[in-house]
Design a protein around this nucleic acid. Structure first.
Length: 805
RNA sequence: GCGGCUAUGGCGGAAUUGGCAGACGCGCCAGAUUUAGGUUCUGGUGUCCCCGACGUGCAGGUUCAAGUCCUGUUAGCCGCACCA
């Protein structure tokens, strides 16, 4: 027996060689392929086998693209601003920059174990002043374009993190980071006008090769709806109340109106009789947290004592206040049609408000209505001049009718809100704005960027709505760049998402001091062709990045509008019983020991073999033995074959071409787990064939298999490639192609069914006609045929079925 | 409540257009080598009343033929959650 497979020696050898002579080089002629991982936060906990999965998937895809002849852009960097580093700093009294640098060192070492083909010359770190200079530059540009603005209003406030949060960071009323109940706090905030891009963010989703799930989540998050604003006069007063509705067709059915308690007119609608109750309701509502509001399913409300006039039929309808109407959506006021809206129905039933049906269900009026009829389908009734029209048609036409009559206007609405962009924390990019008493808000001049984050005595958040930066007088006090008067710096910092919204642009030109990225390089290397990461950023990072890219397109920095052409979300690796791996659960599996025992190549392959890449998978260490055995067996076959150098047989050639075909097809369809099982199947098959040839197969077959294996197990592939007599890297070999004609069998096996049950298997020529196939089949199952044959089916090369009765 | 995903042996999973369900691997059983165990190799391994029948969460349907298509339904996970 030839030398055994020694993963340690082989992997160490090739790491060194690849470091000396990189295999991925830009010769200026190759087409580029940009394959990107979502860059990690450099946590102190290090990597577990779940982190490996995404990196292995992207590396396999990258190396495959390299074999296809692309120049590969496959960078890695660090999303290093954020709360964990800051919290660690508070606890240990060490500067976040110090702990971050240490974590980066450790994780980089662990990532190197994966042997992914990252180009570390492109590395970026969001906390590097040379990087955040450009994060700040983008903010200044947005400010100058009117997209960054200041506003004081009640924002989401996390009492535990002591900072404001964006809508996207509030999940079920609690903080996405720490799980504390989010409250409201009136604060002066920097906002980014992402809503200006709502339509483009929505429409361009069509262009993207992304998972439907993510597109759907973004679509819902943007939440565009079509409808009308209708003005309802207030009985006995000059003012009107404007409501927003998506169902103007039901206007005749509006029997009451509800305003959000925060509505500007709410208090003024009270009469002497109702004033006390109204004021109490408004006060109580202001005291409710998000969580309370979500949990109180039972509707509450109070009648204001005032009436509005339905502009279509001039009927007086009561005006109520209720917190089921949101102040910050639409106009903060709604017309209520209890017959055709579930919520209005519930409210009307509870408070004894009349219910008027205006759309016939199944052609008639419902007696004793027990639930709202919410479909826009049926004929209009009880609707004056609209009677007899189809609801679906009227729904579309009503906004125009309303507009023509001067009762309101056709309009659209979005759920998307502007992005709360300031954080009252230390470890983030300082917002480069100077508040001047004479000139107002003045951006830090571009040639003075980066505005460095100063050192500070205490990183502790103040909780007052001010960032710790506010305590540094010598930093806060400055002069206005415009007029030179004494002025103060903005002390809020940017959210964690600021750097990650554009980092992928910087990799390809990370040392450029003149521009965020040069136009030439941006054009040549971008956008990202394949983006791989978890689904948890569907409406955070992925939406923000699209917004940033569109803005940078608008100001001429890049010449594309969408950053990520294709997106792949890998499933999570969990511990036993689907429990998320975490330190506190004690179920974290570290890759370090597995690499030591089995080698990087084995672990890479097992990460893929564990299940379909897009689904979650439970980790089980034992399975790695399977791929490890496969690599040993393949090694033995390859080494023997190289030694014996036997001539190719028909069987070997056929198997080789089929192997190329199958592996390529499975890889193309991203079915990476079945690529691994495919390798095992073909290895078993080749070992079987080799038995007739002194335990060996021909060198070309081994060579082909080695190239196919190279994206998955690069070290063993490179070693065998060298043993096959090559002095160039296996990654310059080029992806093999198959020859369809070489794959064909002369004779094939076809199952024969009688009445749908398999009774025999026949061998027939591959090109047999239906008649020949049926004849052979009948002979094979002669003893099982009873009754009259009523149907004979031959699906070429697949099956024969004889139906007899 | 609305929307999406998932359901196949003891376990992870496989199965283009409907065409031999359970590939491949783990585990397990038996044997060989070695023998202290492990490694390695060979064979076996869905269920049962085992020459046959039954089997892809459950109940129907379409079809010569259904894991795959249609209707209904259950469970688990994920997203959204009073957006008018």
């Amino acid at each position: 027996m030839a030398l055994p497979y020694n993963h340690k020696a082989i992997e160490a050898k090739w790491r060194t060689k690849w470091a000396e002579k990189p295999v991925n080089v830009d010769d200026g002629k190759k087409e580029k392929y940009y394959c990107l991982d979502m860059f990690p936060y450099p946590s102190g906990n290090g990597l577990h086998v779940g982190h490996w999965r995404g990196y292995v998937i992207s590396d396999v895809w990258s190396r495959y693209k390299m074999q296809q002849g692309y120049y590969l852009i496959h960078p890695m960097g660090w999303d290093a601003f954020g709360l964990p580093a800051e919290n660690y700093a508070i606890k240990m009294g060490v500067h976040p920059a110090v702990s971050t640098a240490e974590n980066v060192r450790n994780i980089k070492k662990q990532i190197n174990d994966i042997a992914a083909i990252y180009d570390w010359d492109m590395e970026v770190n969001t906390t590097d002043p040379d990087f955040y200079k450009w994060t700040q530059w983008i903010f200044v540009k947005m400010f100058k374009e009117g997209l960054a603005y200041e506003k004081e209003f009640p924002i989401n406030w996390c009492p535990s993190c002591k900072t404001g949060l964006a809508n996207e960071e509030v999940v079920n009323g609690v903080c996405e980071r720490c799980g504390s109940a989010v409250t409201k706090k009136n604060l002066r905030q920097w906002m980014l006008k992402i809503t200006k891009y709502a339509d483009r963010l929505l429409n361009d989703l069509d262009k993207l090769d992304w998972p439907e799930k993510v597109k759907k989540m973004q679509t819902d998050w943007i939440g565009k709806s079509y409808g009308a604003e209708v003005n309802f006069p207030i009985d006995g007063r000059e003012e009107k109340i404007t409501v927003y509705t998506t169902r103007p067709d039901t206007l005749f059915g509006a029997t009451f109106m509800v305003l959000a308690p925060e509505h500007a007119l709410a208090a003024s609608l009270a009469t002497d009789e109702t004033r006390e109750a109204v004021e109490k309701y408004i006060y109580d509502a202001s005291m409710k947290s998000n969580v309370d509001r979500l949990q109180d399913k039972e509707k509450t409300g109070v009648f204001t004592g005032s009436y509005a006039i339905n502009p279509m039929n001039n009927e007086k309808i009561p005006i109520w206040l209720s917190d089921y109407v949101l102040a910050d959506y639409g106009t903060g006021a709604i017309m209520c049609v209890p017959a055709h809206d579930d919520r209005d129905f519930e409210f009307a039933t509870k408070f004894g408000i009349p219910i008027v049906q205006v759309i016939a269900k199944d052609g008639k009026e419902i007696e004793n209505m027990t639930e709202a009829y919410t479909e826009a389908s049926g004929t209009m009734i009880n609707s004056g001049e609209w009677n007899g029209m189809e609801s679906a048609v009227l729904k579309k036409e009503a906004p125009m009718i309303i507009e023509e009559r001067g009762l309101g206007r056709k309009t659209t609405n979005y759920k998307l809100r502007d992005w709360v962009f300031s954080r009252q924390r230390y470890w983030g990019e300082p917002i480069p704005i100077i508040h001047c008493p004479k000139c107002g808000n003045v951006p830090v001049p571009e040639d003075q960027l980066p505005l460095r984050l100063p050192d500070v005595e205490s990183y502790q958040p103040t909780g007052t709505g001010e960032s710790p930066l506010a305590a540094i007088d010598e930093w806060v006090n400055t002069t206005c760049p415009c007029c030179g008067s004494p002025a103060k710096r903005e002390t809020n910092t940017m959210p964690q998402w600021a750097g990650s919204s554009w980092y992928f642009l910087r990799y390809v030109d990370n040392k450029n001091n003149e521009a965020l990225v040069s136009k030439e390089k941006a054009h040549k290397y971008l956008p990202v062709d394949m983006y791989i990461g978890g689904v948890e950023h569907a409406v955070l990072h992925l939406l923000y990045s699209r917004f940033y890219t569109k803005f940078l397109y608008d100001i001429g920095v890049v010449d594309f509008e969408e950053p990520f052409t294709k997106l792949f979300n890998q499933g999570m690796i969990t511990g036993k019983n689907g429990i998320k791996m975490s330190k506190s659960k004690g179920n974290v599996v570290s890759p370090d020991d597995l690499v030591e025992d089995y080698g990087c190549d084995s672990l890479r392959m097992y990460e893929l073999f564990v299940g379909p890449p897009e689904l979650d998978a439970e980790w089980d260490d034992r399975g790695i033995d399977g791929v490890s055995r496969f690599l040993k067996r393949f090694w033995n076959l390859a080494v023997t074959s190289i030694e014996k150098n036997v001539p190719a047989t028909q069987d070997m050639i056929k198997t080789r071409h089929r192997m190329v075909h199958d592996i390529t097809q499975r890889l193309e369809s991203f079915s990476l787990n079945t690529v691994i099982s495919g390798f095992m199947e073909y290895n078993n098959k080749l070992i079987e064939i080799a038995k007739a040839s002194d335990g060996a197969v021909d060198k070309e077959t081994i060579e082909t298999a080695v190239v196919l294996l190279s994206p998955f197990a690069p070290h063993i592939a490179e070693e065998l490639w060298e043993m096959l007599g090559h002095d160039t890297t296996v990654f310059s070999a080029g992806w093999p192609e198959h020859d369809e004609s070489a794959m064909k069998d002369d004779e094939i096996e076809v199952p024969v069914q009688v009445n749908g049950k398999t009774r025999a298997v026949i061998r027939i020529p591959a090109e047999a006609t239906k008649e020949e196939a049926i004849a052979a089949a009948k002979e094979a199952v002669a003893d099982k045929l009873a009754g009259t044959i009523i149907k004979e089916i031959y699906v070429p090369k697949k099956i024969v079925n004889i139906v007899a009765r």
